[in-house]
Design a protein around this nucleic acid. Sequence first.
DNA 1: AGATATTTGTTGATTTTTCAATGATACATT
DNA 2: AATGTATCATTGAAAAATCAACAAATATCT
Lengths: 150, 150
Amino acid sequence: MSIESDINQPTFRNEYQKAIINLIYSYNWTTEQLKNIFGNENLTMQQFNILRILRGSDMPLSTLQIRERMLDKMSDTSRIVDRLILKELVKKITCKSDKRLVDVTITNKGKAVLAKLDTHEDAMENIIRSLTESEAKILNTLLDKMRSSQ
Amino acid sequence: MSIESDINQPTFRNEYQKAIINLIYSYNWTTEQLKNIFGNENLTMQQFNILRILRGSDMPLSTLQIRERMLDKMSDTSRIVDRLILKELVKKITCKSDKRLVDVTITNKGKAVLAKLDTHEDAMENIIRSLTESEAKILNTLLDKMRSSQ
DNA sequence: AGATATTTGTTGATTTTTCAATGATACATT
DNA sequence: AATGTATCATTGAAAAATCAACAAATATCT
């Protein structure tokens, strides 16, 4: 279905305006599917994102380092980490060498939750399987270029 | 800049996984720019979206009709409309022919706010001007196809 | 007509996000 | 060493999003 009929807007100013709106709509569509997949583990997308980042790092990360790697840079990383601590999925201690920083690491319980979700990786990718792999590649190229101002 | 370096993740499972993550990241990047543009009018993206929908309709719309046209279908349309009423940008009355429905319309004040933002339409599109118009068109095609499950 | 189901919109309670302000530590300069 | 500046993380307060429950009006069925 085209974006025009999806949101009941027959015309756009141009392809640029349409692309911006299409991007927002497609993001919402995609995350809607994603939430169904890992909502079973009672994780928000942000929490999931942080867990993945921590697992992917071979050393503890500071709050700032986590935020830099997050998909949503405006996240309130500090509080999301605290929520993950409540769930015992991560732990943090103040950094020895620089007491301004905290060392955040994923716990075994956190790893177990991710391991469970790993079994759904195929399901996540299937969300956009109506694209061929080479189309997905073009999409990636265009998105990267889109963000390269100047 | 590539998504790999943007989020400090050197590899992905495949182009599909990368595309999903790229989409989320690119959405956040884009909305970040957008917020700067119409944040001056103290409107959230959802409020802006509803105002545009109402202006684009030649008749009053019900809460449900608005939600159907919104980019984020999960929105709490009812409360967002109420916030817009507080700002006197829209008004609503219960529908004569079906008292379950409400007729929501944009006010002159609401139109004035949008008119102000119309002067920034070019700025909005410039966000993704590093794409050529035909690239933007391909992006639109791919996003539409991406959402067509089966 | 009367009972039941569906549609539509709102509300309550909780969680999350947002933006600005604060506090603590480290760094730089004199 | 003392002062000022920068960095990093947290907190407070307000706004917004989320999820489930609810109520009213309409539609459907017997």
